[in-house]
């Protein structure tokens, strides 16, 4: 019953454009665990372990998913993008900067997941209505902000992209 955990599996993941070997792992590990504990990518956060909070959101083959619900070893050969792959440290993306400027960040624990979800939303819908923002981000729970400043941040990005002709 209580056998030891075999920490001996090796495989490779494609994360943020790099091939990253995963070593000495247990195959039951979620992608979230492997990103954080094996690859040192600590930006994705775990807060519920069951897909109910969105803090661990990443892109797998361009789809926004909860990395806690992806078996890491099943994601070999898929393209994984994490918060660390959004923009280099010190050069935040427009979405990241808007979150800072609009007061959309308090404790910040949900923030990386929301940044991933917002980029995915604006990729699909350049000029979302407030209701579309709410529905598309409804898988990301924030306990600090009450969401108001986050919606403001998303709207600011949509406007500035439209103005600058990116949209």
């Amino acid at each position: 019953m209580s056998e030891s955990v075999a920490l001996n599996e090796q495989y490779e993941l494609h994360v943020n454009g790099e091939v990253r070997p995963v070593r000495d792992s247990w195959l039951g590990e979620s992608l979230l665990y492997v990103l954080r504990e094996r690859l040192g990518l600590l930006g994705s956060k775990g807060a519920c372990e069951q897909g109910e909070c969105g803090s661990c959101s990443v892109l797998v083959d361009d789809e926004l998913v909860c990395s806690c619900l992806v078996l890491a070893a099943s994601a070999v050969d898929q393209s994984i993008v994490t918060i660390e792959g959004v923009a280099p440290i010190g050069s935040p993306s427009d979405v990241q900067q808007a979150f800072v400027d609009a007061g959309a960040v308090q404790c910040g624990f949900c923030t990386p997941g929301l940044i991933m979800a917002t980029h995915a939303l604006l990729e699909r819908t350049a000029d979302p209505t407030e209701f579309e923002i709410r529905e598309e981000l409804s898988g990301n729970v924030c306990r600090c902000t009450g969401y108001g400043r986050i919606i403001e941040a998303v709207q600011r990005v949509a406007v500035s992209r439209r103005v600058s002709g990116q949209a």
Partner: peptide, 26 residues
């Protein structure tokens, strides 16, 4: 394992300890 949205909840919580997994999402 299809999308994992049911099964991984059980794996994460320790309620399911699979010895073999076949992931069919590819």
């Amino acid at each position: 394992l299809a999308g994992g949205t049911d099964a991984m909840v059980e794996v994460n919580s320790g309620h399911r300890k699979p010895s073999h997994v076949i992931a069919i999402n590819r």
